[in-house]
């Protein structure tokens, strides 16, 4: 019923607008088209000026309302560089924005049609054109220079002592693998993936490096210690988005990618800094991956080395989950033969 009334009111409003528009056309004809045209010309010129002023106030108001809601300080050392670059660009483009918008609307208002003025025949001027080719070129060269400098710093090789975490996306969850005590990830092959047999990542159990690898659904990293993420996907393209750290990298099936950064604050420090007791670092999927894309969330916990070690030691390697309560070497061949036999029967 409510919808019906809204539609009725809209239709009615439209009808009135249309009638007024129609009448104004007739009135214009009666009053002399030229005169009516000049009047609307003045109204529109005035409105352009109003739009400029209202727009500038709007820009200020919008900033006041929303500046507190955009993310605060970057939580990684690399993120700081990105923020610096963002502010440099904001300053340069901001100046250009205000100058050109003000000129545009001011010229439109100032040079509205008038009987007193004749348009100035001004087809070109080489000097002016060179000036406004060179100035943007210089400004952009500077921005490219800064940008590429930071880009190489951020995308360069991770430091040798960086800890490594493997991140795997799949519809619609994140899984993390830690290399365990040996510091080396075991091999995996996607055809071995079998969540029911506790092998969600397709680890090859005959690779000894896999024995101590830990698979978990929450990422823990150490404050002030560079971390290198080795990113992959099981099904479609996902994207590891870490807004607070200002980092992002696609997760592509078949093509592992990497990204590294150095977190600056522990989760607890961020809770204190932001005054928000529920604060948590979030990992968002930033590449459309299907119907659950908007809910593909991961949690990142930044903690001290001690806390991290304590946490890691409490976790059981995935190998144990896949081979419950057995001496590992014994069951492995038996399982394989059984499966081969099953396959042969098919």
């Amino acid at each position: 019923m409510q919808t019906f009334f809204v539609i009725l009111i809209l239709a009615f409003g439209f009808l009135i607008t249309f009638q007024i528009a129609k009448t104004s056309e007739y009135v214009a004809v009666l009053r002399g088209e030229e005169k009516a045209r000049k009047q609307t010309n003045r109204i529109n010129a005035f409105l352009l000026l109003i739009f400029l002023i209202a727009g500038l106030i709007g820009v200020y108001y919008c900033n006041e309302r929303l500046k507190g809601k955009i993310l605060g300080e970057a939580a990684s050392i690399q993120g700081e560089k990105i923020d610096t670059m963002l502010y440099i660009t904001l300053a340069v483009t901001g100046i250009v924005f205000f100058i050109t918008q003000i000129l545009l609307f001011w010229f439109a208002f100032k040079y509205q049609e008038s009987d007193q003025r004749k348009a100035y025949y001004f087809p070109h001027n080489n000097k002016l054109e060179i000036i406004w080719t060179v100035i943007p070129a210089i400004a952009l060269t500077a921005l490219v220079g800064f940008g590429i400098y930071y880009w190489f710093k951020i995308t360069g090789d991770a430091p040798q002592d960086a800890m490594q975490v493997e991140v795997t996306g799949s519809q619609f969850k994140w899984e993390f693998r830690y290399p365990g005590k040996d510091g080396i990830f075991g091999k995996k092959y996607y055809k071995q993936i079998d969540p029911e047999k506790n092998n969600p990542l397709g680890q090859l159990w005959d690779d000894p490096y896999n024995r101590d690898d830990i698979v978990i659904n929450e990422m823990h990293i150490v404050v002030n210690k560079p971390v290198k993420l080795i990113i992959g996907s099981k099904d479609v393209i996902h994207d590891v988005g870490l807004a607070q750290f200002r980092m992002k990298m696609d997760a592509v099936p078949g093509t592992p990618t990497t990204m590294w950064f150095t977190p600056k604050y522990t989760t607890r420090q961020m809770i204190e800094k932001s005054g928000d007791p529920d604060f948590v670092y979030e990992l968002s999927c930033d590449q459309l991956c299907g119907k659950g894309h908007y809910s593909m969330r991961g949690v990142v916990i930044v903690e001290t080395q001690e806390e991290f070690d304590r946490w890691l030691i409490s976790k059981q390697p995935q190998y144990m989950a896949a081979h419950p309560a057995q001496a590992p070497q014994k069951t492995q061949p038996a399982d394989t033969t059984k499966r081969v036999a099953a396959n042969m029967n098919k």
């Binding site: 545009l104 010229f107 040079y111 049609e113 008038s114 100035y120 001004f122 406004w132 070129a137």
Partner: peptide, 26 residues
Amino acid sequence: TLLIAVPSAIKVFNWLTTLWRGNIRF
């Protein structure tokens, strides 16, 4: 990519100058 901003900027400045000292009908 950023190079493309140069011809774009030229276009904007030229439009602004086209309006400058015109006798504009809205």
